[in-house]
Amino acid sequence: MKLNKDCIRNLLLAVESEPFGKEVTKHTFDNISFTDQYSLEEIIYTTQRLIEANYINAQVQHAGDEVHNFYISSLTWEGHHS
């Protein structure tokens, strides 16, 4: 899958805009305005790449081979300065 730079930007901005201590999850993405622009697979793929790049503090829960949910708690130092 190709990494979408617009999705990266929107995801980082969404996490940054949440109040301190509130997690962004797969299930709360319905309330974030940009999610209609990207498939769930694209958002999950972007989340996984941002974890690898150390841009977000997050956990991904798997159910077999599928992502069941993810929990993004905050941006890291690198995420704030990207």
Rank of each mutant, 00 (worst) to 15 (best):
V67Q: 02
G64Q: 03
D30Y: 12
S82Y: 15
E42S: 06
F70N: 02
E66F: 15
T47N: 03
E23K: 04
I51A: 03
S17Q: 12
E66R: 07
I44A: 01
N10G: 00
S74M: 06
D6A: 06
N31Q: 14
Y55M: 15
N69H: 08
S17A: 15
I32G: 02
K5H: 13
K26E: 06
K5Q: 15
S73T: 14
E18Q: 12
Y45N: 05
S74D: 15
L75N: 05
T28P: 03
H81L: 09
I8Y: 05
T47G: 04
P19E: 02
F34A: 00
T76W: 10
T76V: 10
I32A: 02
L13K: 10
R49I: 15
T35E: 05
D36F: 10
H80G: 13
Q59M: 09
T28Q: 02
E18Y: 12
Y71W: 13
Y38S: 00
E78F: 09
K5E: 14
K22C: 08
L50E: 05
S82L: 13
K26V: 10
G79F: 11
I32D: 00
D6G: 08
Y71N: 00
Y71I: 06
D30H: 08
Y38P: 03
H27G: 06
S73R: 04
F70E: 01
T28G: 03
I51R: 04
S33R: 09
E18C: 10
P19C: 00
T46V: 15
S74A: 15
Y45E: 09
S73P: 02
D6V: 09
N69P: 08
A63G: 12
H80K: 10
I72H: 00
N10K: 08
T46Q: 04
F34E: 02
S33I: 09
A63R: 15
P19V: 03
H27E: 15
D30P: 01
S17Y: 09
F29G: 01
D6P: 07
V60R: 04
L50T: 06
Y38T: 00
H81A: 06
Q59T: 12
N69V: 11
A63H: 14
E18L: 14
Q59V: 11
T25I: 02
A53V: 11
L11H: 03
G21Q: 06
S17L: 11
E41N: 08
N57H: 12
V24S: 00
F20M: 04
I8D: 04
T25C: 00
H27S: 12
V67F: 08
E78K: 10
N31F: 14
A63Y: 14
K2I: 09
L13M: 10
L50Y: 06
T25P: 05
V60F: 08
K5A: 12
T35Y: 07
F29K: 01
S82N: 14
A53I: 12
E52K: 07
G64H: 05
S82C: 13
L3I: 13
L3P: 08
S39L: 06
A63M: 13
R49D: 14
V67T: 13
N54I: 11
P19T: 00
E52Q: 11
